[in-house]
């Protein structure tokens, strides 16, 4: 499903956010804050930038999306269901017994989930492996890896950043969902990861910055990152945790707390 107009993409993002709220409300467990901060970026990827085929999830030439911040899988599940990878009804089974929609995404449960993630820090390495395999096989696919800003505190990420630049994986774009909140508080207070732009640059990366909620700009920067040759690209996307639901925005407690009935109704109304 390709959407070209920014208005259509923005409308799709509202629909996806509604699904995220509904799923989390039913499951009573999961991570709204980071799912909502990443929604616009993921909608731009799946509905505009990436090549794939829901009828053939393992199509060898597909672009890959690795959700390194695996706890934000409600956003991914809502998109995959909307694209027809599995029935929308399944969204109601999030985190329930015998559901393929595990609390953190599992490759063996859903083939369209490109890698099992959850424990932070591993997705960029996995993405590098996929990108390097693509180069070996002379494939044109592009690999997208979404990281959290708090996740940048994991040592494995920095190892992987060196690997990307050493092997010049220009068929990979990392996206940092920079919402400046993690479980224990502000990223800048828990353990500062800034200046991220300088750090990526000094590690040999091409760095782009964008407002992670401005669809027009996101679409533009994704195109630029894909075209950049000779080095890996990162898009540092400034976002708001809980974006789209007024009472969740920038509230750290909505990292891993789901909305109650009243909050759900209010959120869905705001997202109409």
């Amino acid at each position: 499903m390709k959407l070209d107009s920014h208005k259509d993409l923005e409308q799709k993002a509202r629909e996806i956010r509604r699904e995220i709220i509904k799923m989390l409300s039913i499951s009573g467990s999961g991570h709204p804050g980071g799912s909502l901060s990443a929604t616009d970026l993921m909608v731009a990827l799946f509905y505009h930038e990436m090549n794939y085929n829901p009828n053939e999830p393992l199509w060898p030439d597909r672009d890959r999306f690795v959700l390194s911040k695996g706890h934000c899988c409600p956003a991914l599940y809502a998109i995959l269901a909307d694209l027809g990878y599995f029935p929308k009804e399944k969204l109601k089974t999030l985190r329930k017994l015998n559901s393929p929609l595990q609390g953190h995404p599992s490759y063996t449960h859903i083939p369209a989930v490109e890698a099992s993630t959850g424990p932070l820090g591993q997705g960029l390495s996995v993405g590098n492996g996929i990108a390097l395999a693509g180069k070996l096989d002379k494939k044109d696919y592009h690999v997208y890896v979404m990281l959290g800003d708090g996740e940048m505190q994991e040592g494995n990420v920095w190892e992987a950043m060196m690997t990307s630049s050493h092997y010049k994986t220009d068929n990979l774009t990392a996206i940092v969902d920079y919402n400046n909140l993690q479980i224990d508080g502000k990223v800048s207070e828990v353990k500062e990861v800034m200046p991220l732009k300088d750090k990526f640059k000094s590690f040999g990366w091409e760095v782009f910055e964008v407002n992670g909620h401005k669809m027009k700009d996101i679409v533009k920067v994704l195109g630029k990152a894909r075209k950049k040759k000779g080095k890996p690209s990162v898009i540092i996307a400034k976002t708001i945790k809980g974006k789209g639901v007024s009472f969740m925005e920038n509230i750290v407690d909505f990292h891993g707390v789901t909305p109650n009935e009243e909050e759900t109704a209010k959120a869905l109304k705001e997202l109409e």
Binding site: P60, Y107, E114, A115, G121, Q122, G123, S125, V126, G127, N128, G129, I130, A131, L132, A133, G134, D137, G155, N156, E159, A160, M162, T163
Partner: peptide, 14 residues
């Protein structure tokens, strides 16, 4: 750590 997770990426690609 990077090596093992990168190996997983290769394996996910056949």
């Amino acid at each position: 750590q990077d090596m093992v997770a990168t190996a997983a990426g290769f394996a996910l690609s056949g």
